[in-house]
């Protein structure tokens, strides 16, 4: 008997490799401040993974680094150390580790962390990401899709919705870079998004529709907060979207097979 390679850690490593363009460009523009933030998030996430390994015999995952990177890039900037550590701990432990580790989580831990920080400390300002970071999301998405670790349909559906909104003349242009970056980094997470093909389409469209809605009606907020909220809602809806997709698939099969 022979065995293939696409186990959990391989997928996590491929995802990490895919987001490298974004991470490097972000570090290039952010300098030492960004680097120290990334080290802090890596450290906190790493400690929790280690604790769960020692206490619960739950193997750590490279996906923890993915969470740390997303949090470091997107978390509000003016938070003090205690607030940041609290937020990451909440996200990593409650959204991922207590569920049994990466692969058994329902929501993306980074999304939960960011939503927690955003709603918990509303006074802190959201980061203003440099435009090249958003451009770097394109090679990241391509690499992820090529390796098959980023769901293609979610990205395509998100892009389609953005194109429709632009075509309809809706005011979505200012939020597009951040929306695209969050789409690749948080929404197109293979675990916390819809797993069926039709479900993926609906998931991406839901995210795009929410972003359009927020861009039109949610005033006085940062695009990052809109994107994180939309990602959270889209991720929460993923299981029901999968259910709908499977129900329609079964319906079609019944119609065809009698």
């Amino acid at each position: 008997m022979i065995r293939g390679i696409w186990d959990r850690e391989m997928v996590a490593l491929m995802l990490l490799a895919a987001v490298m363009p974004m991470a490097l460009i972000w570090l290039w523009y952010g300098g030492t401040a960004a680097l120290s933030r990334l080290l802090l998030t890596l450290l906190v996430a790493g400690i929790w993974h280690l604790l769960f390994m020692l206490i619960r015999a739950q193997p750590p995952s490279f996906a923890g680094a993915l969470t740390a990177l997303a949090v470091a890039m997107l978390a509000p900037v003016e938070l003090n150390l205690f607030q940041l550590v609290l937020g990451i701990s909440f996200g990593v432990v409650m959204a991922e580790l207590v569920m049994g580790g990466w692969g058994r989580n329902v929501l993306n831990p980074a999304t939960v962390t960011l939503a927690f920080l955003g709603f918990g400390f509303p006074a802190a300002a959201w980061p203003d990401l440099p435009l090249p970071v958003a451009w770097a999301a394109i090679p990241a998405a391509l690499m992820g899709m090529l390796a098959g670790v980023i769901p293609v349909h979610i990205l395509l559906a998100g892009l389609l919705t953005a194109a429709l909104a632009l075509g309809a003349g809706l005011p979505v242009e200012p939020i597009l870079p951040v929306a695209g970056l969050v789409l690749v980094l948080l929404v197109a997470d293979p675990v916390a998004s819809a797993s069926t093909r039709a479900g993926g389409w609906m998931n991406g469209q839901l995210y795009g529709a929410l972003m359009t809605l927020f861009a039109m009606y949610w005033e006085q907020t940062s695009p990052v907060q809109m994107a994180v909220s939309a990602a959270l809602l889209a991720s929460l809806a993923a299981p029901i979207l999968d259910e709908i997709a499977i129900a329609t698939w079964l319906q079609r099969r019944r119609g065809r097979l009698g």
């Binding site: 996590a12 390994m53 015999a57 990466w102 692969g103 675990v191």
Partner: peptide, 18 residues
Amino acid sequence: ALRRAARPLPVIPTAALN
């Protein structure tokens, strides 16, 4: 300890799996 879990590792949805 890094490799062997109390519970087996979950399967991650990928294009290869589908």
